[in-house]
Design a protein around this nucleic acid. Structure first.
Lengths: 294, 294
DNA sequence: CCCCCGTTTTTTATACATAAGAAACATATG
DNA sequence: CATATGTTTCTTATGTATAAAAAACGGGGG
């Protein structure tokens, strides 16, 4: 009763691989494809079988070659490539952020399962994992309570975020010249500039860049608890801002500017500058979030 | 297929309530008992029924009275009062800390379920919740990896702990005289002195006191992420030291001394003193943990 | 009208079942 | 012998089932 989303995703990815090959060309080995697609060989074989059945691939003894017209292969739709657990995540976030839930709402596993059209087991598993974000709390033998996407949530979040990020940013001042981080910072700057140049069209790409940027800073001295906390931040920005698009473009443009300033400060290796740039950005991010909650 | 551990625990607790009543005395209402026992009325009624069946209680029209010899009621054994999920926690910790698992070990849900004699669902749920402790990591479609109870785990843990605890301790310096916290600190000191006086017999009670002490300090400015992190610390101390009893008495005695010093520093409201006492304690705790891991 | 108890309905905790996917094993081919 | 494919076995993801526990409902007595 497991869904075949892994297969469908691999199938779609395989189409892209095939596109790079010529008609009549021999395919890479199952093992090579396994590595490229990031799935098991079992799944690779299933994909290959599916493609053979469609005539996209022709299987001969001990080799497979590209068949006719691989141009118009039909892809599986995006929804069918998402595991049920991922769909539940989206459904839940929507339910939460659409405002169906106000602080203190009791969350009912059975009801959610019905609403989302999935088994209770999955909802339960999701809630257990979601617990770490600090937005819900379990009560013994009796469901969960939604604590609300409130101002105090944002404030508590940023209190921690500031501690963690200042700690990492300061470490930059002590980094040797030869550290590979400086290269990464350089390309991070380039990515920011690129996005900024095309901000009108691509302002929605910022959320992902933001997450990568902050993860890079934090990664100078790896700490699993800090990394895990980044997930919380990423979740907040990813989902919350999906439902709060007010001033999105302007907001992201400002943030890019702050990131660039921070990058410059980091490269200066001057603790005072770093501190100021970092705090400035965090304060502004906090205010933006608070503003969008109210 | 749910176990009736809630009932059994309530039954045992009910025995204690009955002990406080006299023969022939009327019992509190179902609702009152519900509140006292912390379970639903459904469970209360089941307990009452069980006691009636045993002749401990005599049910008359609209009232229930204590029957004969409530002295030798047989309690349900402790194990039967623990939910399966709690048993799994213990089993897993034992498996982990007994050394069956070295860093990098792959964790197999199905195998653990067999080993512990429970359904895979439960193991899976446990692992999902346990993830937040930073000791295991999930791989897509393929079980978990045990990252090991290693020195770097301890170091990362204490890096965060130091940030959090210094932050809270410092806040004490700004607390007004009238704050109720000072009373709690006082009784915390008393509890420590009491334990210290009887350290030879009660040194095992320290772990719980330790957790309460640190939670009290942290609670001056509540932050859900910090509170959740305390769970990690509590887990480490509770379980790890259950399997590493070396120097337990001495270790706890030292820690009590450090706690008392910190209490004094907090009461002095002198930031420098607080900082030093706090750091001293954390450093010592870290060294102790590192030492016991190696 | 409010609390108490009996009854019914709903939800949770846990077990079990099974298709999809991963891994291990076996065989063949160059 | 190494690498690729064919086959078998084991594990995970997800649905369903059900007893225990919680919650909701309802009548009766103070």
């Amino acid at each position: 009763m497991r869904t075949d989303t892994t297969f469908k995703r691999a199938f779609n990815d395989m189409i892209d691989i095939i596109r790079t090959l010529d008609l009549g060309e021999e395919l890479p080995s199952e093992n090579a494809l396994r590595a490229q697609l990031g799935v098991s060989r079992t799944t690779v074989r299933k994909v290959l079988a599916g493609m053979s059945a469609r005539g996209i691939i022709i299987s001969e003894a001990h080799r497979r070659i590209i068949g006719e017209q691989p141009q118009q292969i039909e892809r599986y739709p995006k929804e069918e490539t998402l595991a049920i657990s991922e769909q539940v995540e989206t459904s839940f976030m929507e339910w939460m952020l659409r405002g169906d839930a106000c602080p203190g709402t009791e969350i009912n596993e059975a009801e959610l399962a019905r609403k989302f059209g999935v088994a209770t087991t999955i909802v339960r598993e999701f809630l257990n994992r979601f617990q770490k974000y600090g937005l819900i709390e379990k009560r013994q033998n009796a469901g969960w309570v939604f604590k609300g996407f409130t101002a105090s949530f944002a404030l508590e979040l940023f209190e921690i975020r500031e501690m963690f990020e200042m700690r990492s940013a300061r470490l930059f001042a002590t980094l040797p010249d030869g550290s590979p981080v400086w290269k990464q910072i350089q390309s991070m700057r380039a990515a920011h500039l690129e996005l900024l140049a095309d901000i009108d069209a691509r302002f929605q790409d910022f959320s992902e860049l933001d997450s990568r940027f902050h993860r890079l800073i934090t990664a100078v001295a790896p700490n699993r608890f800090i990394e895990s906390f980044q997930d919380v931040i990423a979740m907040v920005f990813h989902y919350h801002y999906q439902w709060n698009k007010r001033d999105e473009r302007a907001r992201n443009e400002v943030a890019i500017g702050e990131h660039l300033a921070l990058i410059e400060a980091l490269e200066s290796r001057n603790i005072a500058l770093i501190d100021r740039a970092c705090r400035l950005h965090l304060t502004s991010a906090r205010e933006t979030l608070l503003h969008s909650i109210a």
